[in-house]
Computed example of a mutant assay.
Amino acid sequence: MEMRIDHHTCIGSGQCTLTAPAVFTQDDDGYAMLVPEGARTANPRQVTQAALSCPVQAITVGNAPPGA
């Protein structure tokens, strides 16, 4: 699973962190960032819900290419 955060769009609402805390966290300024290795243990449904909960749609989710 591939996840990306558009850091120019993120407003730091924290909805992603509340929805999928094993995958998303917030930096010192309150903006979203990925938890290191969080993608490996990510629940796809939870990650999708986190992306949908973002009020500015700063998170995109897709499938990683095979072998990635």
Rank of each mutant, 00 (worst) to 15 (best):
R40P: 00
N63S: 11
C10G: 00
I59V: 11
A50S: 02
A51R: 07
G67H: 01
G38F: 04
P55K: 00
T48Q: 13
H7W: 13
M3C: 14
D29H: 10
D28C: 08
Q15D: 12
P65L: 13
V35D: 10
P21D: 09
I59R: 02
T41A: 11
T19V: 02
A51C: 05
D6W: 02
M33V: 11
T17A: 14
Q49Y: 07
P44D: 06
P55G: 09
S13H: 13
A39I: 10
T19S: 04
T19M: 10
M33Q: 14
C16D: 01
Q26P: 11
V47W: 08
A39V: 12
V23Y: 04
A64G: 09
D6N: 12
S13L: 06
A22W: 03
T17W: 11
I5C: 00
I59G: 07
M3G: 06
T41K: 12
F24I: 00
Y31M: 09
A51F: 07
M3H: 08
P21M: 10
M3S: 12
A22M: 09
L34V: 04
V61R: 04
D29V: 11
N63D: 14
I11P: 04
V47H: 08
Q57R: 02
I5P: 07
G67W: 02
F24K: 04
G12K: 01
P36M: 08
P66G: 06
D29Y: 10
A51S: 10
C16K: 03
A32C: 05
A32S: 14
Q15P: 05
Q26F: 09
A20C: 05
D28L: 11
A68Q: 13
A50P: 03
M3K: 10
T41P: 04
Q15E: 15
G12A: 01
A22Y: 01
A58F: 00
T17D: 09
A42H: 02
A68N: 08
G62H: 09
G67Y: 01
R4E: 08
D6Y: 05
G62C: 03
